[in-house]
């Protein structure tokens, strides 16, 4: 699989079809993988693909990385779940489909965090998204690398995140409140969650606006709650549950929980699943006159 990947990268760069290949490569001790940006065909052998490749590299296609954009047309090594983010970026006009070459990777799952890796991919170290994955065979690609994967996701979503959501739905408001305040209290307002997300591409994030200052910037409970609510709200109907925000959070705040809950709401209310259709507008910028409003008096 890696050979096939390297060959394609080499071809793309040699023929000038792309200027840079964004992919994964080993760190110096070969213990973790890290993003690599290959511009020279001779470096194509640096590319790797394995269960450690958890990062969602689609972030490098956004305007957050102007220096990478300046290199010219990129090719990107992307798992199905990463492609979902690219699909959203295309549907929101952030990336032109013709301006990116998607090297889709057949995938059998990754580790939730690279730290967990002990040489073997077992169910218990895979993130929830892999257990429910519909895109192990990548869905929007220019080329697919690897053999077809035979996997049918379960009807009812499974995994830790969904177990937790079901447990949560049975809790009282007060219990839920205490849970979240306890977690949000630990937020240090580092905004790593935002920086890691390829859908948080605003030139100026609402939390950085100070005239007026809607969200307090100090890591105080009040501003922490406001920040986390608004982050989740701005991702509602867009978030693909890739899990990068939670992985980036140094305070271990269970952001996947709230993201997946919002995704369930959107699916139930508007029949929308994010990241599958480039032509479809995200549900929060369109409407139907017959949308549900039984909660409105």
């Amino acid at each position: 699989m890696e050979e096939q990947l390297r060959k394609e990268a080499r071809r793309l760069l040699t023929e000038g079809e792309v200027a840079v290949v964004i992919g994964y490569g080993w760190n110096s001790r070969k213990t973790r993988v890290t993003p690599v940006f290959i511009t020279n065909p001779d470096d194509a052998d640096k590319l790797v693909f394995n269960a450690l490749c958890v990062n969602n590299l689609s972030i490098y296609l956004t305007r957050k990385y102007k220096d990478i954009k300046a290199l010219g047309k990129p090719a990107i090594v992307a798992k199905g779940c990463d492609i979902k983010n690219i699909v959203i970026c295309v549907s929101e006009g952030q990336v032109a489909r013709d301006n990116v070459y998607i090297i889709g990777m057949s995938c059998t799952g990754v580790v939730y965090k690279q730290e967990l890796w002990q040489g073997e991919l077992t169910d218990n170290i895979m993130p929830t998204k892999c257990h429910n994955c519909e895109v192990r065979n990548p869905h929007v690609t220019d080329i697919v690398i690897g053999d077809k994967v035979d996997f049918t996701p379960p009807e009812e979503p499974t995994g830790m995140v969904f177990d937790k959501i079901r447990e949560f739905d049975r809790k009282t408001p007060k219990e839920r409140w205490d849970f979240w305040i306890d977690h949000f209290n630990r937020c240090i307002k580092c905004y790593a969650c935002r920086q890691a997300c390829s859908l948080c591409y605003c030139e100026r994030c609402i939390t950085d606006k100070n005239q007026p200052q809607w969200i307090e910037t100090s890591a105080h409970e009040r501003g922490n709650l406001a920040w986390n609510l608004i982050r989740a709200q701005h991702l509602t109907g867009r978030c693909t549950e890739c899990g990068e925000c939670e992985r980036a959070c140094p305070a271990n705040i269970p952001l996947n929980l709230v993201n997946s809950k919002q995704a369930l709401i959107v699916k139930e209310s508007f029949g929308y699943k994010s990241g599958f259709d480039m032509e479809e507008h995200p549900p929060m910028i369109v409407y139907k006159p017959e949308d549900k409003d039984d909660f409105i008096k």
Partner: peptide, 15 residues
């Protein structure tokens, strides 16, 4: 209305 569907759910989930 769409925004409220999302936000109301979020507020409910937050407790």
């Amino acid at each position: 209305r769409r925004r409220w569907v999302g936000f109301k759910g979020l507020m409910e989930f937050t407790g």
